[in-house]
Every structure is written in structure tokens, then in C-alpha cells.
Amino acid sequence: MTFYYWTQQTYEPSSKLKLVDVDEVTYFEDWLVFDSKGEGQTKGGIIIYPGAKVEPEAYSYYGQELSKHGYFVAIPNVRLNLPILEIDKADEIIDKYPSVGNWFIGGHSLGGVAAANYAKNHSDVITGIFFLGSFPSENSDFSNTSIPILSLFADKDGLTTLDKIDESANLLSENTVMKEISGGNHSQFGVYCEQKGDGEATISVVEQQNIVIESILDWVNNE
């Protein structure tokens, strides 16, 4: 019972910073979905697993902005707010939208760990993996693969520290792009309140989120 109450003490999307027009958010069952608004055919699908105990709306800005560039974006609610408990959640959205084509999956913090697990077990479906202040676990070793990977990390991140990024680098593929966000921290990979143990960012949440968006677009457009 104590564990259940702990999982319900979530990080809600910040009400102090309105980055997303709520009218732009559509729900499919327990998913937030952002249809492609680019001209022509949808370029691909991007699935973002939330961090542990972080509500999916905290990543809505990514969905809003990436969809403007021709990508379908989906962000799930997960059981007990822990993505590691629903690693295969992506099956639901991929099955629902079979015409999307290329699928990229990633996530923030523990969401990235879960996304990597999914990608490891579904290499026939996933085109590439991205990490936002995150890294793969030992059972998701991509070192002998060529799958495209994007690793974005921040130098003020007090939770996914630079040491942890370095220690896990041997699990990444030979086709990995790594980028450090100077002045960023852990919680600003989403839009929610300060997280215990995190470092203090020296750039704004908008600046950090825009760096992430630009980096993801550069990466997916080249895959």
C-alpha cells in the first residue's frame, strides 16, 4: 500500500508556464496524440515514454512542436506512473496507426530505460531510439548493433549525471549521436516542478526543450 501511494505522488505539468495550447492535445484511450501537421505524408511516428512518476502532459510541448514538422507523436499514461511496468505499451499505438511507417521511440529518465527495452525486443519495428537524460540498462545492450541512437544529456542533471552517461556509453550502438545540453538539468527535459536531487539549471525550460526538439528533428530527418 505504501508503494502504491508513492507512485501516485506524481510530478504534474507546470501550471506556471503555458507552452501548449490545450486544444491541440487529443487523447486516444490513455495516450496523448499529436497528429502530423506538416505538408504531405507523415514522415514517421515518435513515441515518448514519460519519466517515473511524471505525468505525460509534462511532455506535451514536444508533441506540439514535433508534429508541426510532419511527425505523429504519442505519449502514454502508464500503470502506476512507472514506464518500466509497461514496456510494451508502444504496441497499442503502433497497432492503431499501421500506416505511420518509421517509428522512433525514446523517453525521459526511467522512460528511456523502458523505451530501450522495447526497442531491443522489437528491432523489426523501431527505426531509432532516443534518450532524454537517460541511458539503456544492461539487458538492453546495443553495442553490437547499428541502430540509430540519440543521447541527449545535461551538465546540470543531478539524477542522470555525466558520470552515469559515461559509464553506460559502452551499451550504445556504433551509430550513436551524443549531445550535451549546457546549462540544462533533469526536470527540464519535461515541463514540471523541481525534482529532488536535481541540479539547478542555468537555462530556461523553454531553451532546453527547444534544444531537445531541434536535436530530435535533425536526427530523425537524417535516418
Rank of each mutant, 00 (worst) to 15 (best):
G111K: 01
E57Y: 14
L172E: 09
S134C: 00
S143A: 12
L19W: 09
I211F: 11
E92H: 12
A201H: 04
V205L: 11
G44C: 02
S109F: 01
P56H: 09
S60I: 08
L162V: 15
S67I: 06
G101F: 04
P83N: 08
T7W: 10
T161R: 06
N170Y: 14
M178N: 14
S99F: 10
V125E: 12
F153V: 03
T161V: 02
G190D: 00
E29V: 09
S36E: 07
V205M: 12
F189W: 01
Q64C: 12
V54P: 09
D141Q: 09
W219Q: 03
I203H: 10
Q41F: 07
Y27K: 14
L172A: 11
P56T: 08
P56Q: 12
I216A: 02
E65N: 12
I147V: 15
S123K: 12
S140N: 06
G112V: 01
D157K: 01
W31T: 04
H122E: 04
N139R: 08
A90W: 08
N221R: 10
V113N: 06
R79L: 15
P136C: 07
G44F: 04
G133H: 03
N210P: 02
N170M: 07
A74E: 04
D198N: 07
K196F: 14
F3D: 13
D218T: 15
F34V: 04
D166W: 10
A114C: 05
N170L: 05
H69E: 14
G45K: 00
E200F: 12
L171E: 05
W103N: 05
I149L: 13
Y71L: 02
D163S: 13
A114Y: 01
F130G: 00
M178W: 10
T176H: 00
V33N: 02
N102L: 14
V25D: 05
E29M: 08
L80P: 08
F28T: 11
N102S: 15
Q195P: 01
L19M: 13
N222I: 00
I126R: 04
E55S: 15
D35G: 10
S134I: 00
D23P: 06
G70A: 02
G133W: 01
F72S: 03
H186Q: 03
S143Q: 08
A74R: 04
E214L: 05
Q208E: 06
A201I: 06
D157N: 03
N170I: 08
K43V: 00
N221P: 09
L150K: 03
L150I: 03
F72Y: 09
Y62M: 07
I149A: 07
K156M: 09
T42G: 01
W219I: 06
I216L: 06
E57K: 14
Y62F: 11
S14D: 15
S123E: 13
F189N: 00
I149G: 04
E207G: 05
P50I: 07
K37M: 10
Q209N: 11
L32E: 09
V20M: 04
T176R: 01
P13T: 06
S99M: 11
G44E: 01
Y59C: 07
Q208S: 00
P83W: 07
W31E: 05
E39I: 11
F135E: 03
K164W: 05
D91C: 05
E214A: 11
N139Q: 12
G133R: 00
